[in-house]
């Protein structure tokens, strides 16, 4: 990650003049949504809903509380749109707001059972998104299993690691400066923390079944079946 762009040091506008940079597109969406443009707003929601949900998941709220936090965060963003001065900081703002609202509900103490969008209760909702077509190529199935293992392993990480990694993989990515402010850590410790968290992820039980599997054995069926059993 040594080459990761860091907006703390790079120029504000680096793209060619006739090609809108990701930041400019985002600024356009924010500005249009602030003026009531529904498609622009919907695009913002689609872009950032996974980030909001990943923070909610990290707090293991029950489904009602999770829905309340989600709704509150979007209502707050609508109020906040007109004051977004730096669209690139939107991901950080959303992550911070979501975390604060999760904390509020945890403190109010309405928790009953953890919310996991991947559990049986909501399988009907998202089941259609998992490749269950028996005729689907094995490669898709394998990829889905690996991604599930990554999500499972991610869910087993300490909250701090989940927050850091969520910000590092957010799209558009949060800058090191934003991450440092958001997590209250020096910029210089982000790299080492990232390495430590990824090591934990690699060593998590969910991924253990895959680690050390010989690439040559892939496709033979045996290792993959073992991985399927262990990864779920």
């Amino acid at each position: 990650m040594a080459e990761r762009p860091d907006s703390a040091t790079r120029p504000e506008v680096g793209a060619a003049p006739d090609v809108p940079a990701a930041d400019e597109i985002l600024a356009g969406l924010v500005s249009a949504a602030a003026n009531g443009d529904e498609p622009a707003w919907a695009e913002l929601v689609r872009r950032y809903a996974p980030l909001v949900l990943s923070v909610i998941r990290a707090h293991r709220l029950n489904r009602t509380d999770a829905a309340d936090v989600n709704q509150t965060v979007w209502l707050r963003l609508v109020e906040h749109l007109g004051r977004v001065r730096e669209p690139a900081a939107l991901a950080t703002w959303l992550a911070t707001t979501t975390r604060r609202e999760c904390y509020r509900l945890v403190r109010i103490g309405r928790r009953t059972q953890p919310f996991d969008p991947l559990d049986d209760a909501v399988e009907a909702t998202i089941g259609a998104l998992l490749p269950q077509d028996p005729s689907a190529p094995d490669e898709n199935l394998l990829r889905a299993e690996r991604r599930q293992a990554l999500r499972d392993g991610f869910g087993q990480l300490p909250a701090r690691c989940r927050e850091l990694l969520s910000l590092l993989v957010s799209d558009p990515p949060a800058s090191y400066r934003e991450i440092a402010e958001r997590l209250g850590m020096p910029i210089g410790s982000i790299g080492p923390s990232q390495a430590r968290c990824l090591r934990k992820l690699r060593n998590s039980p969910a991924l253990a079944a895959f680690v050390g599997a010989s690439p040559d054995a892939e496709g033979s069926g045996g290792d993959r079946d073992g991985a399927v059993a262990a990864g779920r």
Binding site: A49, P50, A67, Q71, P117, L129, L130, R147, V169
Partner: peptide
């Protein structure tokens, strides 16, 4: 790969998106 996994972790349940819209 983690980023890809989290992004496709299923698309947020429809009710979550609807509340956002």
């Amino acid at each position: 790969e983690l980023g890809a996994a989290l992004r496709d972790s299923g698309p947020p349940p429809e009710e979550f998106l609807a509340a956002g819209y």
